[in-house]
Design a protein around this nucleic acid. Structure first.
Lengths: 235, 235
DNA sequence: CAAACCAATCTGGTTAACCAATTTGGCCGA
DNA sequence: TCGGCCAAATTGGTTAACCAGATTGGTTTG
């Protein structure tokens, strides 16, 4: 069989088309939650794509909780209902890559919450982690070195201390993009960093004091620049 | 070679151990951002696991933006800095499955934001989608049928109308879990649904009127029950 | 001496073959 | 006729072989 090498873009298109075909198949065959999908081999033949592609598409839908695979048995439709499944598939197909603005918007939203929760739920161990993350950040800034990573690690430590696994995961997902874009757009000017130390210390102190309100307020101050960047158009 | 079938749990452990080994390798070899990792074959041999496992672990780290693969070339360390990478890997290894409370907490946070953004940014097309989602929900409730799916689809439509791709994605990720847990814990009593119609209509109207403040308020009312479920201990 | 080129090698991606657990359908016995 | 049971077919997962593009190091050529 002729083998072709696909670009990332093309590969994404293939996967999207497989998901669309799966949606149509489920519609056409009137498959309901709990029903078994045709085998991977059959699907790969029917759709004219490789089994790897089928497996990747299934994995993606598994990630979104729409399907689940049982070894040596088959792939099944999750128990979330036909309507929800169909609608979610549509949404997944329509998802676009998040732009920087969306990322910042989401980050601010998440962090204003995680910092409150961290203030409420932080343990002694969390404090220790936060302290060392803060120290690493301060050390870099005082040496006039770039401290974007240490900055973000401090914020990730806050997310971890919030004891909310979803928010922690979401923070982990958006952080690399944020770092990349920060460096690209030079959002963090180096002269800002000295102010950053004070702001980070304030946040840390509020968490230490278990004062959620002040923690959120300090985080808001810390995000002031980002806030403006993100919200100068609307809101 | 002896082939063994692993449970989901064991498979997860294998992947975690591979990630840990990768972290150690990067540490040991002093690999920096942009450097190339050893080839998948070499890693599979060195770690004593199958190439599939290596590939899956790499895909996971690619998802979190820590690595990236170039076809016919190699896998590279993303340009996010050594410190950030090491810290993030640690966090990924420490991630646990989100509990229901965390999910609800996150959902409320996200939705109070998406509904505001939807009110600000919704297009005519969004309104149309929202309207039909609302109609489907109403129809089900009036027929005294279970309407959890239609409920969630309305909320997903709001997320879509918020024009924030990150939040939209995150809503899609947590929605199936929410549905499953709702059904398990019977959070939505059927007698609540009639009130739900009014609440949904209020939210829709606020979005239609482009009144973000009222939209958020109506959503808050709608979440009152959930709110109590989630926050009866703290906050 | 440097730049262009070429072939051997290496790489991630793809395909095909294989494995063992699970279904399944019909057979046997009660 | 019904229920237990076993072998064959089916399945997702795994391994191995293969592909074509990218890399690279040495050679050639201007």
């Amino acid at each position: 069989m002729k083998v072709e090498v696909l670009t990332n873009k093309e590969k994404r298109d293939v996967q999207q088309s497989i998901i669309a075909k799966l949606r149509d198949l489920i519609e056409y065959k009137n498959l309901e939650p709990g029903d078994k999908l045709p085998s991977e081999r059959m699907l790969s033949e029917k759709f004219g794509v490789s089994r790897s592609n089928i497996r990747e598409a299934i994995q993606k839908l598994e990630f979104y909780g729409i399907l689940y695979s049982k070894p040596q048995s088959g792939t099944f439709i999750a128990d979330i209902g036909r309507v929800a499944m169909s609608g979610m598939m549509e949404d997944i197909l329509g998802l676009e890559e998040p732009d920087f603005k969306a990322l910042v918007e989401t980050r601010i939203l998440l962090e204003l919450k995680t910092v409150r929760l961290a203030a409420l739920r932080r343990t002694a161990a969390d404090l220790k982690t936060l302290q060392s993350a803060l120290d690493a950040y301060k050390k870099k800034v005082l040496n006039k070195e770039d401290a974007v990573e240490e900055d973000l690690l401090f914020h990730l430590a806050i997310a971890k201390a919030s004891k909310n696994s979803s928010m922690n995961t979401f923070m982990l997902i958006i952080t690399p993009e944020i770092i990349t874009n920060f460096e690209k757009y030079h959002v963090c000017d180096s002269n800002q960093s000295f102010i950053g130390i004070k702001e980070h210390e304030d946040i840390f102190q509020a968490i230490k004091d278990q004062d959620p309100k002040r923690a959120k307020e300090m985080m808001k101050v810390h995000f002031k620049v980002l806030y403006q960047y993100c919200y100068h158009t609307d809101n």
